[in-house]
Nucleic acid binder design. Structure first.
Lengths: 125, 125
DNA sequence: GCGGTATCGAGAATTCAATATCACTAAGGG
DNA sequence: CCCTTAGTGATATTGAATTCTCGATACCGC
């Protein structure tokens, strides 16, 4: 099964490289359609799935919201979810001692921090 | 619209008071059925909705998982999600400075921390 | 260029949490 | 105890995200 280099896949990859933040399927669709007008949502999902299983992208799950996707291999970071525009942004820095908060006997393997509020664009308006 | 005191509603309330941790609809169903054998999932959802709008319960949203519910009015805290048994537990303590991590210009209003790993029961086995 | 086939696009289908429907049950005031 | 009706249980339905189907398209090795 040879992997071909299609416009669609290229446009989706480029979308992530330009965005610099996690993107949802419909965000990707809207942005990548500027490059590939006929792009369909099925192709977006198909491509996301492939890029994730190829290790190029990572799934970003958030409370009460559909998954976002971001480039794999980024340094450990967390996320900011804007309540106005629903966009998600990366947040640098990490309260590493959070793992100590687990009750006695619990084995903590990972953690996630999500901030909620208004992004700079929405806080201004 | 008079509110009646039914066995079902009482059993569901008692379930939360005994659990001491956030519960999902099916967890509630299973536990409360020990008291009210015929209990149906529709009643669980109906009752949860009512108790939330009455301010008795709060919704706990978690990444990539159906909502849990917990008693309202608890002190600020966070959550631990066990990857083995899928149960959620409360975690005391809070890295308050996390809100400072937001990028410049962002207005942070709230935050959530979720720990992942094995709860004490699952870590032992 | 040609051909084989990976990939695409549109729409149908699936999944699963959550809600609605409706005939039946039972809480509780009189 | 009786009657009204809030509440219940089983099941159908919804809604949103995601996946599948299938005929059409376009990579790319030859």
């Amino acid at each position: 099964m040879i992997t071909r280099r299609t416009q669609q896949r290229h446009a989706i990859r480029a979308t992530f490289e330009n965005a610099g933040r996690p993107l949802g399927p419909h965000e990707i669709l809207n942005i990548a359609r500027d490059v590939v007008p006929g792009l369909g949502i099925a192709t977006v999902y198909r491509t996301l799935k492939k890029l994730v299983s190829d290790g190029e992208l990572q799934v970003v799950e958030l409370p009460g919201a559909p998954s976002r996707y971001e480039l794999a291999g980024l340094a450990h970071h967390h996320h900011f979810h804007c309540r106005d525009c629903d966009r998600v942004f990366d947040v640098e820095g990490c309260p590493e001692q959070v793992t100590d908060y687990a009750p006695p006997g619990f084995r903590t393997e990972e953690h996630a921090v999500v901030l909620y509020g208004r992004c700079s664009a929405c806080a201004t308006g």
